[in-house]
Amino acid sequence: MNHDSNPVFSCAGVRIHIGEKEVVKGVDLTVQPGEIHAIMGPNGSGKSTLANGLMGHPAYAVEGTVTLAGEDVSSLPPDEKARRGMFLAFQYPVAVPGVTVASFLRAAVSAVRGADVPVREFRKELLERMADLEMDPAFAGRYLNDGFSGGEKKRVEILQLLMLKPRFALLDETDSGLDIDALKVVARGINTAASNDTGMVLVTHYQRLLNYVHPHVVHVFMDGRIVRTGGPELALELEERGYDWLEPAAAAGGV
């Protein structure tokens, strides 16, 4: 982590509407390279909407400024954000039947790196990253997320994180639905990405993942806002006290 460098990601005044309803009500964030932020909050607080909205989900109307490595990407479509180094690990990755993990990843890696990767080189890299995540090589030939268990889907999201090497990644509930062994593997992947200078925001409502991934900054997210920001100790406090004690802060409109 290097606080002297320019932030890899920041957003300011982000508000997101789904239809008529304002779900995210003004969010500011700044993430440095290699820095891990956790956004924690109860179900229904708008965390996933924030993650999807920042990536550019077509169903969400997003206001505010989103900056990636110094460039304003607020109005860019998701594919252009991705090619500039932004990534979202999905809470519920969608199945794409008929498209294998390997062929999909090769297309994605080529798109993000801006050049076709030779098959042999790609194959080697893919198998190495799969081994890191303790995945059966046969996975490469399976259709993307088609019939995958919850844990398998999350591993494939982390596999993509490691293959695409984004500057900045949003991880939406990547810890949910994992048994303890899978959680450790996923945490290792996240730590590897951080050590490669990827800045990350982990969206979660469990403290569990934070036993294996140590965030530099913890934000509490309630009712569409960040209501408190602190260090790793804040996560432990949430684990102990729940969210109720922060209700007055949420009612007051956040920090």
């Binding site: 954000k81 994605a108 695409l164």
Partner: peptide, 17 residues
């Protein structure tokens, strides 16, 4: 959206699907 979030342009994403 999933494929576009991985850097595939809309036309390419549609072709893959």
């Amino acid at each position: 959206f999933y494929l576009e979030s991985r850097g595939l342009a809309p036309m390419q994403a549609a072709r893959v699907i």
